[in-house]
């Protein structure tokens, strides 16, 4: 599993929010079986970086290489449908991703007792657990997680850490933006030094306003 083709490799990447570069010159790699923790103050561009890696927005510069169809993205919002039950929510994503891991996901995040409850009736922490259980049903090896532990209690954080550990042990990897200590064996990547400086070279203008200066 250690072939470079299985790794997420980012080279010299610049990511932008609303046409303004926020992080520049990012280079790192995430090998299978590893966890990388993203750190940085609020507004430093962690979410933007994750969205770029997930393919939701184009990078302004730089390249990334990744195995095909490998990434599962877990955003701030869980994308749950309030009127569907816990099980129906998971079954939907399972069939979108073409997997059959619903039972494992339900038991993995301790949702068994809640399985036929409508997602709208769950507490914030329970919703979050359901959102994280979605990652298990995707069957994807690389997890990109944005603040996954928001509104989780200590026991649920431990549950989440266990899930990540099991995922990593099975050859998966995870890139997690978080502020708390998950108790995972992980490298830490601090984005603070990569904060983009205002470009002074007008020729650098691609899809942003520098061309006008």
């Amino acid at each position: 599993m250690n072939a470079p083709a299985d790794a997420l490799v980012v080279r010299d990447m610049t990511v932008a929010r609303g046409g303004v570069p926020v992080l520049a010159g990012l280079s790192f790699r995430l090998d299978p079986g590893r966890v990388l923790i993203l750190r940085g103050p609020n507004g430093s561009g962690k979410t933007t970086l994750l969205r770029t890696l997930a393919g939701l927005q184009p990078a302004m510069a730089g390249t990334m290489s990744q195995p095909a169809e490998a990434i599962a993205y877990g955003a701030h919002a869980d994308g749950l449908k309030a009127v569907l039950t816990v099980e129906e929510n998971l079954r939907f994503w399972a069939s979108v991703y073409g997997t059959d891991a619903v039972e494992a996901a339900i038991s993995g995040f301790n949702l068994t007792g809640l399985r036929s409850r409508a997602a709208g009736n769950l507490s914030a922490g329970q919703k979050r657990r359901l959102g994280l259980a979605r990652l298990l049903v995707t069957g994807r090896p690389i997890w990109l997680l944005d603040e996954p532990t928001v509104s989780l209690d200590t026991a649920s954080v431990a549950l989440f850490a266990d899930a990540v550990r099991a995922h990593v042990a099975a050859g998966g990897s995870a890139l997690i933006a978080t502020h708390i200590d998950l108790g995972l064996e992980a490298e830490v990547f601090d984005v603070t030094p990569y904060k983009a400086q205002a470009a002074t070279d007008p020729a650098a203008g691609g899809s942003f306003d520098e061309a006008f200066l």
């Binding site: 609303g18 046409g19 303004v20 942003f208 306003d209 520098e210 006008f212 200066l213």
Partner: peptide, 8 residues
């Protein structure tokens, strides 16, 4: 647009 860029 130039003004906008400067503000940004």
């Amino acid at each position: 647009r130039r003004l906008h860029a400067l503000e940004m």
